[in-house]
Computed example of a mutant assay.
Amino acid sequence: MPTQSPADPLPRKTLTAMQTELAEAIDRRTVGREHCTTAIKSLSLSRRESVTEPCACVVEPSLVIVVQGAKQLLIGDHAYAYDTEHFLVTSLDLPASSQVLEASPDKPLLGLVLKLDLSLIAELISQARLPSPGKCSAEASVGLGRISPTLLEACSRLMALLDEPADIPVLAPLVKREIHYKLLKSDLAARLWQIASMSGQRQRIARAIDWLKTNYAEPLHTAELAAHVQMSTSSLHHYFRQLTAKSPLQYQKWLRLREARRLMLNEDMDAAGAAFQVGYESPSQFSREYSRLFGAPPKRDIEGLRQTGDTRAVA
């Protein structure tokens, strides 16, 4: 009888058992909470007990794994569905919407998010002398990969460290390094190479995003931003929209409105004060654009958030 090669995928039942074990570990740490930070920097856990409508969010460069249930990430006109078969990788700070597709109180959606260390990915590529996987076929900043037992096993060991807090400073960096390495061996290798190199237009757009995040309250002169990142104005618009599904001006507006929402909810600032704080000169324009993004005028939206205790969109 032929034996299974170590390189062969493990049986599906083994993968399912690993997901069940990981789901139990996430479940006991998230009871009563939808989002849970952990003692391991860059690792957070999520739980949802019902399907949802799309909810505005910001997506950092991350690995997202669901071990029970299903979600999708909406960026522009594109939907990226992920579940127990697929993981999600994002490479830029993106305005997006997150939607729970499968969840119930008896079987909640359970998952984890690990922020990616792009410098570590680049270091591993160089140190391990990994062969180039070839060009990535798409310029999008989001990719879907197929879940593997080896990736889940490393994530399980990272989760297990939460029960041994004294070991976290020594062992967590090693396990996170292994997870990044496993990603470079996955079917998203080409995209991760592209992310790590941050070459060409992607690097310039990342620099433009960093500038906007720091200077969102300042008037935006697109030609000056293009010169700052060494691009033509037309190229900046083209690649910025391709990678983020927004123009630079739309991205700045999104940053302003999210910060204004945070100021009103967490610092009790009134709408006019928040509007001026984030760079708006016209309170009426602020109210119109706020309502368009969040579905309600500022005062009604903030009252609704306080009644429900839902602070996901302003975290």
Score class of each variant (00 low, 15 high):
Ala81Ser: 12
Arg48Ser: 09
Gln277Ala: 15
Ala217Arg: 12
Ala274Leu: 00
Ala128Asp: 13
Gly295Pro: 08
Ala154Asn: 10
Ala140Ser: 10
Pro11Ser: 09
Ala227Cys: 02
Leu265Gly: 03
Arg12Lys: 07
Arg48Asp: 09
Ser234Pro: 01
Arg29Trp: 03
Leu63Glu: 00
Val314Cys: 08
Arg177Trp: 05
Ala189Met: 06
Lys176Val: 12
Gly279Lys: 01
Tyr239Phe: 09
Ala206His: 11
Arg202Ala: 14
Ile195Glu: 13
Tyr80Glu: 01
Thr222Gly: 05
Gln19Ile: 04
Ala189His: 03
Val170Trp: 06
Ser232Phe: 04
Leu63Ser: 03
Phe276His: 14
Gly309Glu: 09
Arg12Val: 15
Pro133Met: 01
His180Leu: 10
Val175Leu: 14
Glu289Ile: 11
Gln242His: 13
Ala172Cys: 03
Glu102Asp: 15
Arg288Phe: 08
Leu225Ser: 06
Ala226His: 02
Ser42Val: 09
Ala189Arg: 06
Tyr290Gly: 01
Pro108Val: 07
Gln242Cys: 13
Leu188Ile: 14
Ser234Arg: 12
Gly32Cys: 04
Leu118Thr: 10
Thr3Cys: 04
Gly200Leu: 06
Ser126His: 10
Lys71Ile: 01
Val64Gly: 07
Gln252Ser: 06
Ile65Thr: 12
Leu63Pro: 00
Val278Ala: 07
Leu171Met: 03
Lys182His: 14
Asp8Ala: 11
Pro133Leu: 05
Ala160Ser: 05
Glu85Met: 11
Phe286Leu: 04
Ser284Val: 15
Pro6Tyr: 02
Pro2Glu: 12
Val66Phe: 03
Arg262Asp: 04
Leu243Cys: 07
Met198Ile: 08
Ser291His: 02
Asn266Phe: 10
Ser137Cys: 10
Glu224Leu: 07
Lys41Glu: 09
Ile147Tyr: 06
Pro105Ser: 12
Pro11Asp: 11
Leu161Cys: 03
Glu153Val: 08
Glu259Lys: 06
Leu112Val: 14
Glu139Met: 13
Ile26Ser: 01
Gly111Asn: 02
Ala272Gly: 01
Val100Asn: 05
Ile65Cys: 13
Gly304Lys: 04
Val113Asn: 04
Gln307Gly: 12
Gln4Glu: 07
Glu49Thr: 14
Arg12Phe: 07
Phe276Gly: 00
Phe276Gln: 15
Ala17Asn: 01
Pro95Met: 12
Ser132Asn: 13
Leu162Asp: 01
Glu281Trp: 03
Asp310His: 15
Met198Pro: 06
Lys253His: 11
Lys299Val: 12
Glu21Ala: 09
Met159Leu: 15
Ala17Val: 03
Val89Met: 04
Ala25Lys: 10
Glu24Val: 04
Tyr290Asn: 10
Ala128Ser: 08
Met159Ile: 04
Leu116Thr: 02
Ile40Leu: 02
Ala272Ser: 08
Asp167Asn: 11
Arg29Cys: 09
Leu116Ile: 05
Ser62Thr: 11
